[in-house]
Design a protein around this nucleic acid. Structure first.
Length: 593
RNA sequence: GGUUCCGUAGCUCAGUUGGAUAGAGCAACAGCCUUCUAAGCUGUGGGUCGCGCGUUCGAAUCGCGCCGGAAUCACCA
């Protein structure tokens, strides 16, 4: 679609050549949306042009404005205030735009073809020793939304998850289960598998702390005690056995991880996220080793006397980084080097986005550098979407103090509140129980997702439970409600009518069309900055604007038949954008609420 | 201490390559439903944009220096 701003710039370039005899480049020209208080649609800032015109700001703006209006058919009028040239686009233009482009359901998105760029997006990446919590929710929602947005910009997207299924953390749950579990299974206890495994992780911590303090009471040095608690030694022994492929340990490991996956799948499903491929660290953790050894042979990496292998990144302003332990085993970095290599071999991505918290900024800086040093030029295609921590009003979540917000509990809570609220309002009475449940879920989830996605990913955010279940103001349900109201109107409207009559659009109508006109740019901006909050805030503004319009003007009882047709199409266009915008956030919109 | 990020209304947040008088929501108070869904709309109060200096026609935005906060700097992941 041809952007009006570009047309204006082109005309202005001609104007300047015509008026002042100088050829200017388009990037000297700044065209933006005209602010609400002034009349006009687009504003050219003329200050940078004064050196060329050698006239006052107002004179220059006036001359350029005059030229634009007489030489560009869809530019209708202008006004010049100081150095701001406000230009109005003709009503015919907006009218035609509304009845063509804006009626498409896929308005704002680009098609994906076999030649489209390939983008791999890793998100979620949980450990398997405990259930998902609020921090994971932010990760999953961001990852999923970024995937949708990236796809809407015409990329082939592959969503991947890297499950951290091995290591000392799962051994801790395993040893606690073995010692105190009496064979407890999720089925017996009627507990989600991930919660059951998490329960034993907590149990481990309890026992461990008790043992440490017992050792200290007996006179042990605190640091030594922390290292020598019997249950820790048992967990380590279990990890050793795991690495040695001990059948019994492996069997227990498989069993407990399986419980966890069943639990995770339930949560993923409720959250509405999914993956194209799941990688397991137990299968990938050795992959980098060969690449590292090859790098060592080629002299890119260095080996210490004890046999450990390091990357020297001092010349890049970083430190040295361990890649293989002295016993030859891999560390996390090694694993990520191998995984990236494997993924490139499989998918040949043009871009690989890692949705991982900002506590790993350093890790990804190092990862890119190491890959680069090893000679992989695609290392430049890796991008770490570093998002901020989620905190509670009282401060950080601490598992030790039991302040961690569990994902399943939170989802239950949101749904419960949505149900209460809906029942109070009593607007769904004609619906069956099943349909009602669907809507409660949509609203509860919509509130949670929107609450988290409306803030800039890179910033830390405060999760206030009271605010998150608020359904008024800048919230998901507010946008859902706006959509539902539009659908209600559309159900009552008849589609017929003459679309070719041009009439005077009122300010609010033009403003709404202008806002929707922005949508494609909002999407591409949010894709290039990997920031769904731009879309969230846009949808809120659009909803607010529509609600005002809805309040001030009647759609179905407008003064003339033509006006009814116009406003019906406008409402439909707004509805389309709300629905597809929410879709990009991974949020569903109900037809009624 | 080094590196990176952040500091905008009482609270939660917008403010994209520097542009006109810095905006929303929540909370408080006051109004609007015989009219398309009041989960809505309207109004009132609320700010030295952490502080200072600089760059220029113009700075919340860019640069430098402070102050305050976060993350990270493991033979952890």
């Amino acid at each position: 679609m041809e952007r009006i701003e570009n047309g204006i710039k082109e005309t202005v370039i001609h104007a300047i050549f015509h008026l002042y005899g100088e050829q200017v480049s388009a990037d000297l020209l700044l065209v933006q949306k005209t602010r609400r208080e002034f009349s006009g649609d687009f504003t050219l800032i003329v200050f940078p042009l004064l050196k060329i015109s050698r006239k006052s700001a107002e004179e220059t703006a006036d001359a350029i404005g005059h030229y634009c209006v007489s030489n560009n058919s869809y530019l209708k009028s202008y006004n010049a205030i100081k150095g701001f040239l406000n230009i109005s686009v003709s009503q015919e233009y907006w009218f035609n735009f509304l009845f063509s482009e804006l009626q498409r359901e896929d308005y704002g998105t680009l098609p994906v073809s076999a030649n489209s760029p390939k983008v791999m997006i890793e998100f979620s990446s949980p450990n398997t020793n405990k259930p998902l919590h609020l921090g994971h929710i932010r990760n999953n929602l961001l990852g999923f939304s970024i995937s949708r947005i990236t796809e809407a910009c015409g990329n082939r997207v592959r969503k991947v998850n890297l499950v951290n299924d091995r290591g000392i953390h799962i051994c801790k749950s395993m040893i606690a289960w073995k010692l105190f579990g009496n064979g407890e299974t999720p089925g017996q206890s009627n507990m989600k598998g991930d919660h059951l495994v998490g329960k034993y992780y907590v149990e481990y911590e309890k026992v461990y702390r008790r043992q440490v303090s017992e050792l200290i009471e007996k006179g042990a040095d605190p640091e030594q005690a922390a290292e020598q608690a019997p249950i820790l030694l048992q967990a380590r022994e279990m990890l050793r056995k795991w690495e040695a492929d001990d059948p019994e340990t492996r069997e227990l490991w498989e069993r407990m991880n399986h419980w966890v996956y069943e639990g995770f799948n339930v949560t993923y499903k409720r959250l509405g996220v999914d993956f194209d491929k799941i990688y397991y660290e137990s299968e990938t953790y050795k992959l980098g080793k060969e690449l590292v050894l090859k790098g060592l042979r080629e002299g890119i990496l260095v080996q210490k006397e004890d046999g450990s292998v390091w990357a020297d990144l001092c010349n890049d302003g970083l430190d040295t980084k361990l890649l293989l332990r002295s016993d030859g085993t891999s560390v996390y970095m090694t694993q990520d080097v191998g995984t990236a290599h494997q993924r490139y071999a499989e998918f040949e991505f043009d871009q690989h986005i890692y949705v991982v918290g900002n506590e790993q900024n350093y890790h990804f800086q190092v990862l890119k550098l190491v890959l680069k040093k090893l000679g992989f030029d695609w290392a430049d295609r890796l991008y770490h979407l570093s998002y901020g921590m989620v905190e509670l009003p009282e401060g950080k979540m601490k598992s030790r103090e039991g302040t961690v917000v569990d994902a399943d509990d939170l989802l239950d809570e949101m749904e419960k509140t949505a149900r209460q609220m809906s029942e109070e309002l009593g607007k769904l009475e004609e619906y069956g129980e099943e349909q009602k449940e669907v809507i409660y879920r949509q609203i509860g989830l919509g509130a949670l997702k929107y609450y988290i996605l409306k803030v800039d990913p890179k910033k830390n955010m405060t999760f206030n439970p009271n605010e998150s279940i608020d359904f008024n103001g800048n919230t998901g349900p507010f946008i859902q409600y706006s959509y539902a109201r539009i659908q209600s109107v559309l159900r009552k409207a008849s589609e017929t009518g003459d679309r070719n009559i041009i009439m005077n659009l009122n300010d609010k109508e033009v403003y709404l069309i202008r806002m929707i006109y922005e949508f494609p740019e909002i999407i591409s901006e949010s894709a290039s900055t990997l920031n769904p909050s731009l879309i969230a805030n846009f949808l809120f503004d659009l909803s607010r604007e529509f609600n005002q319009f809805y309040h001030d003007f009647s759609i179905l009882s407008a003064e003339s038949h033509e006006l009814v047709v116009l406003r019906t199409h406008l409402a439909k266009a707004v509805g389309n954008v709300l629905k597809s915008g929410m879709g990009l956030l991974g949020i569903e919109v109900p037809e009624r609420m």
